[in-house]
Design a protein around this nucleic acid. Structure first.
Length: 421
RNA sequence: GGAGGGGUGUCCGAAUUGGCAAGGAGCCGGUCUUGAAAACCGGUGAAAGGUAGCGAUACCCGUCUGGGUUCGAGUCCCAGCCCCUCCGCCA
């Protein structure tokens, strides 16, 4: 959420941001409601001030057992006026707030305004095969480690059973990633996999992306679409100590996404699922260090691919590709041989104070210092399902069998290959 | 799921028949002391917001949340959230 006063004072900047992001929002209507809100607020406050004074006077008169009938009669009318005005004021306040919640974050000056992302760097050697590489879906089914058919029976399309070494590989990756990030100084969190409405609003999923979330309507709970939601909300409505910052967390969760609107596009295999596993990195920082911490977070995520020896590249996200809540961000993309292109496997974003303002997460600079909003950052470290895709495809041989990366073997009881039969 | 108790500042904790939200602890400063503790004196403390103003400041809001009654609500009424105790169910 942007600051109300800031938007009012920087309307043209906001207009530019909306245009660059391709977001439609009626700024004029917003300004109109804000003006009404301020007018009614002034009026109602004036009346309330009078009410407070008179009410005090009535109290004094009564305590001396004198009559206050005249005053009370006058006050009855005043109370009626206040009630009407207050209703208008509250209504306008709500409208203004609703508008604010639908405005996307500002863009950092480093964000490319062109349509395309900008490649920052790449790492590793793109593998060449002397046979036609299979895609991960075929590999997984032929090896008997991915079962889409039965998942469709049990849940529906967009789900998968991982079986035997497929399940083991998934679990090994989760543990490998968690251990790696622990060694990089992150603290481990295992959060709730459902959150309430306030939490989903705090990180920006609601109200705008309602359709993306699975909702347990009866209880108004939302299945987490990413660990970012519960972990960022860990400190909602808190004032942190500056000396405790930055706070760095790593959390594994399954992620649940409805992928509404994406169903038209046929995406094969486990690349786009309604449920997938992810290890997420989350940081709370001061404004001064947030971009520095983002670079660290990015390289901490990259380290996963380096150790797995998977070729990847890092791109800087353009205004149109950047997420609603993010002010700046990178994607890490891993090489997928069957498609002969890079596939997004992590997004590392700096939200600046956008989420902190929505979720009210602040820090106090010194003992008696003022409070300021923290900056929140996060990035996948990494999406586990897509890492499986990369491993299967990059390390396959002509028989369709797969070699397990060295670093994972200790997590798989020494298994070095996934073979047929 | 059923029955009961509770939620007030950083913490503890009062507030009568509805009438300016006590008092402690803490924190800050001081006296005393070689230094500290203790004691004593003074100060501070109800967040965050919002409105007006260049600003000092003034006002609104503010006792878990949202409504209601009332001239006026920490207090009365309704709904909800959270915590505790007991019963039931349960991996």
């Amino acid at each position: 959420m942007l600051g109300l006063k800031w938007v009012r004072d920087n309307v043209e900047t906001v207009r530019e941001i909306l245009a660059a992001r391709g977001v439609k929002a009626d700024l004029d209507k917003f300004l109109d409601w804000d003006e009404k809100r301020r007018k009614w607020t002034q009026e109602v406050e004036k009346l309330k001030h009078r009410q407070n004074l008179y009410s005090k006077k009535i109290g004094e008169l009564k305590s001396r057992s004198q009559s206050a009938e005249d005053l009370i009669e006058e006050m009855q009318q005043l109370a009626g006026e206040i009630k009407d005005l207050e209703k208008k004021r509250k209504d306008s306040e709500e409208r203004v707030k609703d508008f604010l919640l639908t405005f996307p974050n500002i863009l950092s000056s480093q964000v490319p305004l062109d349509k395309d992302n900008v490649e920052e760097r790449n790492w590793g050697k793109i593998p060449s095969f002397d046979f036609k590489p299979r895609d991960h879906q075929r590999l997984g089914e032929e090896l008997g480690i991915l079962d889409f058919k039965r998942a469709a029976k049990v849940a529906g399309s967009g789900f998968v059973f991982c079986r035997d070494l497929g399940a083991r590989l998934e679990r090994a990756l989760i543990n490998f990633m968690l251990d790696l990030h622990l060694s990089q100084g992150y603290r481990e969190i295992l959060p709730p996999f459902m959150t309430n409405r306030a939490a989903a609003t705090g990180t920006g999923q609601l109200p705008k992306f309602q359709d993306e979330l699975y909702c347990c309507e009866k209880d108004d709970y939302y299945l987490v679409p990413t660990a970012e939601v519960p972990v960022t909300n860990l400190h909602r409505d808190e004032v942190l100590k500056e000396e405790d910052l930055p706070l760095s967390y790593v959390a594994y969760t399954p992620c649940f996404r409805r992928e509404a609107g994406a169903s038209g596009k046929k995406v094969q295999g486990i690349i786009r699922q309604h449920q997938f596993n992810k290890v997420e990195l989350v940081k709370f920082t001061t404004p001064q260090t947030s971009y520095e911490e983002l670079e660290k977070l990015l390289s901490d995520a990259e380290e996963v691919l380096k150790r797995l020896e998977l070729a990847y590249r890092v791109v800087r996200l353009s205004a149109s590709e950047l997420g609603f809540s993010a002010a700046f961000g990178y994607d890490i993309e891993v090489w997928v041989p069957s498609q002969e292109k890079f596939l997004e496997i992590s997004t590392c974003s700096d939200y600046e104070d956008f989420q902190a303002r929505r979720a009210s997460i602040k820090y106090r600079s010194s003992k008696r210092g003022n409070t300021h909003y923290v900056h929140t950052l996060n990035g996948s470290g990494l999406a586990v399902g897509r890492t499986v895709v990369a491993i299967l495809e990059n390390f396959q041989d002509s028989k369709g069998e797969v070699t397990i990366p060295q670093v994972l073997r200790s997590y798989m009881n020494g298994v070095a290959r996934i073979e047929k039969g």
